[in-house]
Design a protein around this nucleic acid. Structure first.
Length: 835
RNA sequence: GCGAAAGUGGCGGAAUUGGCAGACGCGCCAGACUUAGGAUCUGGUCCCGCAAGGGGUGGGGGUUCGAGUCCCCCCUUUCGCACCA
């Protein structure tokens, strides 16, 4: 064995051997327990970044552990390769996006191979090839058949930078998710939508299956879906005898309604303006309110504004007439675009009515009978109804139920459920995506492309402009086609699909990546699914992670899969930051992983990624920190190399039952070493099963190295048996194999083994060896630490007590006072309480 | 504004169930080896104090023999939601 650690040489050697041995190739094997480890597939931007390294180092540690535990592990990777960055680069350099994309994929694949992750590369999935995206089209057609894909003209979010439409999920704080400083504008466009709203209830309901998902993600999804139960009530515009429907979650407060608010865009508004006594004035007022209304939520805490329309509406519960106002804070996009205002019991209404001097009437008292409405605040809790005609005296809960029922019987309202989530707009006016497989025929209308004609190929050599028109519209060979129904001339849809469609089902494809007859093989999916562990960043909590759940439910409904949730367990890792900020080119704080591989080797980079912080927390990159990781691997290498020659021929006893016979009695020195080794093994085993605090696992491995370095005895002088040292080194190597596989395999070989550590069965720690024989027990007097005594692990309570009381320091602190009681926590401490 | 998570040495972090606070690493200090060291090895390193001793986990209170950990109030940071009727 070489005497110095040369990571470049070792890593190249083992990566070659692993590939030659097909070490990471996974095959479905019925009857063998499986484990599916999935990391979020990267977008091929050109180079991997530290976030990828962290993500894949975590996943690889788990995949390797599960393999060594005997599971049949599936650990795949692919490329989320459609999308805007490639198209923008293409425009800039006047080269086709495919060229960039495939070049970037090649480069990133090399970088991932350099990292040595245990992927089954035969299963690589690339979303931008027809063999993959044809199935996006197939899913789209299936959804169209079921009415889940539909076209409508609507106000959509438009990013002026991307020159395309964005889904609601892609708008963050009123700005584009890729251009955080670019406010989204609204445009009226014909768009294709997927009816995710049909699945809102199931997306909520099935969360009870997601017990191994982070609470945070579930809460975010819950808020995003935004279910609220309430009542729709028809008021009537008195002057025009027109109904205006409002939605409220608090129908119990309706006797306190003193005004009705309409959104400026409310469909009734035109009629009101026309019928108004002063149409010009009202029109300009509505215009003003519209202009001040939440344009794209860039302005937070918008000042409330409104104007009276001059009309009145009749409350169907008490027959009262209240004024109708237009108000800037009422959203047209939620509920009915009209609300009843109850200033006494709603903060917003209170604020508005106070400002505009509208009446405030209390109709709810707290349950102890006090009126809580005052000059400063509304009372918004549930309570007991007052001044509410026949409902007076009821609790809010009873009233909501009864009043809703009464409205239904009288025909002026009904109980209903509102959701915040909107249908998923998937049309993109860009080139580099999956063509939407639809055809427009002058006589037949909208006609789907027949399944047999899939894929609708994305044409090559398209002039890219990035001007907001779909580039495909300028390709006559693509656009001009014949109608599948009547055979007449027709035009193809020229928009492409949102790339989030691609990532909504890619992880199914890994289980049989080349199947040509269907998007997925049911057999393969049945064996490998669900994904046992998914690992990725929190930033996908409401985009990808909700779309993917939606897709699975649709797949279940069309009979492709038999379950409704694809991922059993989700882990969201922290970000890699530097100097307190997320690594980004614009901030100039990017650390390039490949430069680090060259300088330190992949094992060091992995080790540092796992050691610097627990995986769920943000990790602050430190240049000296990685030096430390590198130094440690050097120590590990040297401590093994030091013994390698004399131990290579020694029989290994780790994990073997006959060890007791081989070594009947260990010396104190030997016990010390084995104790530490098995304590480390116990800690790592328990940690890998649940907690995943790899930083502490590595810390323990470091302690083990310190222990090995500190042994006084040596094998050559016969004071310590070679098999004991060998066993200790083996534990060290196998633990390191999870985190730094290349050096581990090299050292494993150096110790006389052949083959990769991945094929070694994870050893069971031996509890007897891990036990301490003698403890240092802290002695407290009145809760303050005064001394430490050494006691045997099985010492009796009485003897511990005697020993503690005999201690000089303890006696001094008791100082003749009376002992009230003695608390002895076995193996922890002893506390003497005196007064 | 609402909701959640977090706050521990100079720094990253450890303390898994209420039981020795600061494991492990970085940095720093000293020493050894060395022509040399940004290699390696050894020792030290929470604060005050020469010491004995005392103090200490954002601040204040509480429960307990015992609190970083549990309870109450407050402060700060991060994240999510933010007129959703």
């Amino acid at each position: 064995m070489d005497t110095t650690y040369d990571p470049q040489k070792i890593e190249a050697k083992w990566q070659r051997l692993w590939a030659e041995q097909h070490l990471f190739d996974a095959e479905a094997a019925l009857g063998r327990k499986k484990y599916y480890v999935l990391e979020m597939l990267p977008y091929p931007s050109g180079d991997i970044h530290m976030g990828h390294v962290r993500n894949y180092s975590i996943g690889d540690a788990l995949a390797r552990y599960m393999s060594m535990k005997g599971f049949n592990v599936l650990h795949p990777i692919g490329w989320d390769s459609f999308g805007l960055p490639a198209e923008n680069a293409a425009i800039k350099h006047q080269r086709p996006p495919a060229e960039f994309t495939f070049a970037y994929i090649d480069r990133m694949r090399q970088q991932l191979k350099r990292l040595g992750v245990s992927y089954d590369w035969r299963r690589e999935v690339t979303t931008c090839v027809p063999e993959y995206y044809r199935w996006n089209q197939w899913f789209f057609l299936k959804m169209y058949e079921r009415g889940l894909a539909y076209r409508k003209k609507s106000r959509v979010n438009w990013c002026p930078q991307c020159e395309t439409v964005l889904a609601n999920e892609q708008v963050v704080d009123g700005c584009c998710w890729r251009h955080e400083d670019t406010p989204v504008v609204e445009k009226e466009l014909e768009q294709w939508f997927l009816k995710i709203t049909d699945y809102a209830e199931r997306l909520l309901d099935d969360m009870k299956e997601l017990v191994r998902w982070p609470e945070r993600v579930l809460t975010m999804q819950q808020n995003w879906i935004g279910k609220s139960k309430g009542t729709e009530v028809d008021f009537r515009i008195e002057e025009l005898d027109l109904p205006v429907r409002v939605f409220t979650t608090r129908v119990d407060t309706i006797f306190g309604c003193t005004v009705v608010f309409l959104a400026a865009e409310h469909p009734l508004m035109d009629k009101l303006i026309t019928a108004s006594k002063d149409p010009g004035h009202l029109r300009s007022e509505v215009g003003r309110i519209k202009a001040s209304a939440v344009p794209s939520k860039v302005e937070v805490n918008l000042e409330k504004d409104g104007a009276a329309t001059g009309f009145t509406a009749r409350n169907p519960y008490n027959g009262e007439l209240v004024p109708v106002w237009v108000a800037n804070f009422v959203l047209m996009g939620y509920g009915t675009g009209a609300v009843m205002a109850v200033p006494a019991h709603d903060e917003r209404d209170f604020e508005f009515c106070t400002t505009f001097d509208l009446p405030i009437r209390t109709v709810i008292e707290s349950k102890d009978g006090e009126s809580k409405v005052n000059l400063e605040a509304a009372f918004t809790e549930y309570g007991r109804l007052v001044n509410s005609g026949p409902y007076t005296g009821l609790s809010s809960e009873q009233a909501i139920e009864r009043m809703t029922r009464d409205a239904e019987q009288a025909g002026f309202g009904k109980g209903t459920v509102q959701y915040r989530i909107k249908d998923w707009g998937i049309s993109r006016q860009r080139y580099w995506g999956t063509p939407i497989p639809m055809i427009y025929c002058g006589s037949c209308g909208v006609v789907p492309v027949p399944e047999s004609q899939l894929p609708v190929l994305l044409p090559a050599d398209v002039k890219l402009t990035g001007t907001g028109q779909s580039p495909l519209a300028g390709v006559p060979e693509f656009v001009d086609t014949t109608c599948p129904k009547c055979g007449g001339p027709a035009r193809r849809e020229t928009d492409t699909m949102d790339t989030f469609v691609d990532s909504s089902w890619y992880f199914y494809r890994y289980t049989d990546p080349k199947i040509e007859t269907a998007p997925i093989s049911k057999e393969a999916v049945n064996y490998w699914f669900p994904v046992d562990q998914y690992i990725g960043g929190i930033e996908h909590a409401i985009l990808h992670l909700i779309y993917m759940r939606f897709f699975t439910k649709v797949m279940m409904d069309i009979g492709l899969v038999t379950f409704s949730e694809p991922v059993a367990r989700l882990f969201t890792q922290g970000m890699v930051i530097k100097d307190g900020a997320k690594m980004s080119k614009s901030k100039g704080n990017v650390v390039d992983p490949t430069a680090m591989f060259e300088k330190y080797g992949a094992d060091t980079v992995r080790l540092y990624m796992l050691f610097a912080a627990p995986p769920e927390k943000d990790l602050d990159w430190s240049d000296t920190g990685i030096e430390g990781a590198s130094r440690f691997l050097g120590r590990v290498y040297r401590v093994v190399a030091k013994y390698a020659d004399e131990l290579a021929g020694v029989e290994s006893v780790l994990g073997k039952a006959e060890r007791r016979k081989v070594v009947p009695e260990y010396s104190a020195e030997e016990r010390k070493l084995l104790r530490k080794a098995h304590q480390v093994l116990r800690h790592v085993t328990e940690d890998m099963e649940e907690r995943w605090h790899f930083n502490t696992d590595i810390a323990l491995a470091m302690e083990l190295v310190n222990e090995l370095a500190g042994i006084e005895a040596s094998v050559s002088d016969g004071k310590i048996r070679p098999e004991v040292v060998k066993e200790t080194l083996e534990v060290l190597i196998l633990v390191m194999a999870l985190f730094t596989p290349h050096i581990a395999d090299e050292l494993w070989e150096g110790l006389g083994h052949s083959g990769a550590t991945l094929r070694v069965a994870w050893p069971q720690y031996e509890a007897e060896l891990a036990i301490e024989e003698e403890l240092e027990l802290p002695v407290q007097v009145n809760g303050k630490l005064r001394a430490r005594i050494r006691v045997a692990v099985d010492a009796s309570e009485k003897s511990i007590r005697q020993l503690a009381l005999a201690d000089d320091k303890v006696a001094q602190n008791i100082n003749g006072r009376q002992i009230v009681k003695v608390i002895l926590v076995p193996k922890k401490l002893i506390n003497i309480v005196v007064k």
